[in-house]
Design a binder for these strands. Sequence first.
DNA 1: CGAGAGGGTGTAAGCGCTTGCAGTATGCTG
DNA 2: CAGCATACTGCAAGCGCTTACACCCTCTCG
Lengths: 339, 339
Amino acid sequence: MVSIDEVARAAGVSTATVSRALSGRGHVSAGAKAKVEEAAKSLGYVVSASASSLASGRTRNIGVLVPFLDRWFFSTVLSGIASALMRRGYDITLYSLTADRGERHDVFDTFLRRQRVDGVIAISLELGQEETERLVELDLPVIAIGGPNPLLTTLTVDDVAVARLATEHLLALGHRRIAHIGASPEFDIDFHIPTQRRQGFELALADAGIEVSPSLFEPADFTIEGGFRAAKQLLGKPGSRPTAIFAASDEMAIGALLAARELGYRVPEDLSVIGIDGHELGEFFRLTTVDQFPLGQGERAADAILEALESTDAETPTHRPGELPFELIVRGSTARLPQ
Amino acid sequence: MVSIDEVARAAGVSTATVSRALSGRGHVSAGAKAKVEEAAKSLGYVVSASASSLASGRTRNIGVLVPFLDRWFFSTVLSGIASALMRRGYDITLYSLTADRGERHDVFDTFLRRQRVDGVIAISLELGQEETERLVELDLPVIAIGGPNPLLTTLTVDDVAVARLATEHLLALGHRRIAHIGASPEFDIDFHIPTQRRQGFELALADAGIEVSPSLFEPADFTIEGGFRAAKQLLGKPGSRPTAIFAASDEMAIGALLAARELGYRVPEDLSVIGIDGHELGEFFRLTTVDQFPLGQGERAADAILEALESTDAETPTHRPGELPFELIVRGSTARLPQ
DNA sequence: CGAGAGGGTGTAAGCGCTTGCAGTATGCTG
DNA sequence: CAGCATACTGCAAGCGCTTACACCCTCTCG
């Protein structure tokens, strides 16, 4: 591996100048800079990450905490983070957090403390009290996406408003018997978003003067299959069936769509279905949804962490822990209730 | 941050002993080891990654190259890698490779050369000649999953055999007019797996004495939507329609399932469908498939890279660039052809 | 024209570890 | 009991960078 000394020799300057020329810190004359860049390029020199980190205390590396790698929403957010950080020359180190207490413990007590990262992004993670404290103790910028956490800078969408928007869309189409698939209690132990969506749903109904009927709620686990099963329950119950279903995620909404189809209901003629997320399959299934732009969430989180890193600590953060955008996307799965 | 000196002082030994006790290299008496561990624990000491890397040349970090983060197959393999590596105390640094030439170039020319990783895993990546060379130049262990590459140690499933197995399953059920959804030529420019699957398909037909009809082939892009469209083509063509469809991925097979449904064909009574992968939705759709255990692929790759790292270079690698396992999973989407 | 302000550069002191080497203690062999 | 291998430990020299400090020069301004 070629080292900074060789570059210095080739360029006819000191290593200090090489370092300054390549990092852009401190003053270097245009001539020297050109010579250094030329030498570095022809030698194929790349600054050693560990040496640079050790000497400067900066790693150019961001840690990303993810609960599930293999679920669409998370991998999409991650994808947004990765591309934004890469553009800025940052590496990303991935910490996949399982439910396993021991493994989680290792992540917070060991992995994150190796001084390998300059900052941390936590994706939709419901962190325990102790875990949050560990994170704060790191004394690094931390950006959380999703799970609102009073101790952390958080980028969140207003889930109550999102759910309200979805519900109001159905109400505006004339629906009155609206079912909801969402938050199963045990899932909610460490994941509050579903509850907020349920709240938004109930608030919208209340505002419309509609009583919330427990029989129009069905818990599920945020998968297509879960949504399918929940919708079958909902549509199979005795008594008048719902004319619309609001699912707390697109995957569950797709499950509901498939369930309706299988039971012989036409969507949207016999049943309207709306979801939340902006899932890639939404278009294919012509699913009406409230898009929360997960790719964009990742990019924003990346920008936020870089900003936190680059602003001197004295400086006040430019913008508040952001509210993330969302938008109703009307496609073919919702329609006006036939008179 | 607490440093090794503080631990040494607290334990009443030299920093050398602390280092040895904590890393397990060299000899340390049981007593000293206990004292060091006790001191380290009570001080909350964790070895600094950059200092350790710089001094030892080992980073305890593996780079993972992924083409798409947000596709089920890749994120599942990644998930397998992540959990296996984490168990062994390794960090993982993610390099997401887009199609963008410039970005790819950066990854190979800069990111990977920062000496931040001890080894590299490349997931199903079709690398250019130059990219492969760059990878080899790094002089690090590299494990590739999928795309067979003569210059790299590769873990691959025998895609010809996989496709043959799927096709033979249909043949054994009496099907003779079997369509294939797979390799679209432009997709194949840098991705050979689809072609191999097509070969396996054609070989199986040839062995059964069945002529391969071009009209029974339809290219698609490996998504549900692509499979859906391709199946519609196949099922809508004049002339006798196929009695079975073999899709080169489960996602396309699911699309085919949905297309068949929409056209009013019953699966498996009117049409058998088989895919490849072992997709998480397979169970839900009762899809017959050839599972290639992507989670396991990731774990194997992780094991392979660690083995390469831990074996001295002199030592011959314990096992050959592996053949990965696969297995026919018969569910409800395939059935005997009615007489 | 002198003082002061920077720009441009090099020297050298670390950053926080790992590890070769050397020294001491201990155990085993013949 | 000499002779030698081996366990354990510490000293100190780096690993490859960054950056404080010092120094020299060139401008600008009063």
